[in-house]
Simulated assay, not measured.
Amino acid sequence: MTHPRYIAALSLGVALLAVMVSNLVWDDTGRPWANAILIPAALIAASGVVLLTRGRGVAFLGYLVLCAGLIIGTVGVLLIAKRMGWGWPLMVTLPCLAVAGTYLWAPGHPVARALHRTVAGLALLGATVGPAFFAFRADLPGWPERWWALYMIAAGAVVLGNALELTRHRIGYRLQGATLLGGPALVTVLLGVRFLTGALPL
């Protein structure tokens, strides 16, 4: 098993190397102050990697710390590169991916797992909003006028699917839980379809 000190040293080295490369690539932007964000982010991410190699409970904390470091570091890179106006959709995608990744630590109880899986699924769907903004900004053809209604339909489908999955578990209140999840989800899907087809005004 790799010694924790080696993991810590390697993680810190890789993180600081990323900071150095960022400074070398964008050394003419006149924003050295962005290192005040990049360097702490590198330390946070390295700490998260170390914690991630520990036990299950500590690993979850390490995952959260690592995600925080990566998100903060991305902000620092966008600032030092003067690309915040271009890369701001990443600030939608990365936090959503971080939430979706918590699915690896899903709880054991069927109801709690269904709720957690719903949140993770919605977060994974939300992560596609960033690339959608990139594509929308590129004026790619084929975009429906009310493209946001597709997200309503997809979000409702995610919740509805988890509600239906909940009914297969042998627990006394599975139908109540499925109804609480599935009812609003079905309404959301139907509204999304109506908005997409133009049957309902904005």
Rank of each mutant, 00 (worst) to 15 (best):
G13A: 14
S22T: 15
W26I: 00
Q176R: 08
F134A: 11
F195L: 13
A34R: 04
M91W: 12
H109P: 10
T53Y: 04
G48F: 03
A163N: 06
Q176T: 13
E145K: 14
G142S: 10
A42C: 02
L164D: 08
F134K: 10
G85A: 03
H169V: 08
T2Y: 02
G182I: 05
L70C: 09
P40K: 11
V19P: 09
G161L: 02
L160Q: 09
R54Q: 14
E165T: 10
R174L: 00
L97H: 02
G183F: 15
G156V: 07
R117F: 05
V193M: 14
S47F: 13
G73Y: 05
L24K: 09
R117G: 09
T53V: 12
L140E: 07
Y151L: 03
V189Y: 01
R54D: 10
I71H: 05
R117K: 12
A157T: 15
L64P: 11
V92Y: 00
V189H: 00
L94Q: 02
L150N: 10
F136N: 13
V129W: 11
L181S: 04
A135K: 09
I80V: 15
A106I: 05
G126N: 10
L181P: 05
A120C: 14
A155W: 12
A36K: 07
V187Y: 04
V49A: 11
G48L: 06
H109A: 11
V119L: 11
D139E: 15
V99T: 08
A98M: 06
V159K: 04
L97F: 14
G30N: 09
A127F: 11
L79T: 14
A123K: 08
P110L: 00
A127V: 10
L166D: 02
V65H: 07
R117T: 08
N35K: 05
S11W: 00
P32I: 12
T118M: 02
R5K: 07
G73A: 10
A199N: 13
A15R: 03
A98P: 06
T128H: 02
L43V: 12
P141D: 01
H3I: 00
R117S: 06
I171S: 01
G161I: 08
P184E: 03
A112L: 13
L64G: 15
A114E: 03
T74S: 08
G142H: 07
L38F: 02
Y6H: 13
V77T: 08
G183K: 04
W26F: 15
W105S: 03
W105I: 00
G62P: 12
T128E: 03
H169T: 03
T128V: 02
Y173D: 13
V111H: 07
R194S: 07
V75S: 05
M1N: 08
P95D: 06
E165A: 15
P95Y: 08
A135V: 15
T29H: 07
G156T: 04
T128P: 04
R31I: 13
W26A: 04
L181Y: 00
T179E: 08
L79Y: 14
M84F: 13
G177P: 04
V193S: 09
W33R: 06
T93L: 05
A149S: 10
L94F: 14
R83N: 08
L52V: 02
E145M: 03
V92P: 01
R170Q: 11
R5C: 01
D27G: 00
L104S: 10
M91A: 12
A8C: 01
I39T: 09
V65P: 08
V77N: 11
G198N: 06
T29A: 05
L104N: 13
Y103T: 11
R168T: 15
A135E: 05
P201V: 01
I37L: 15
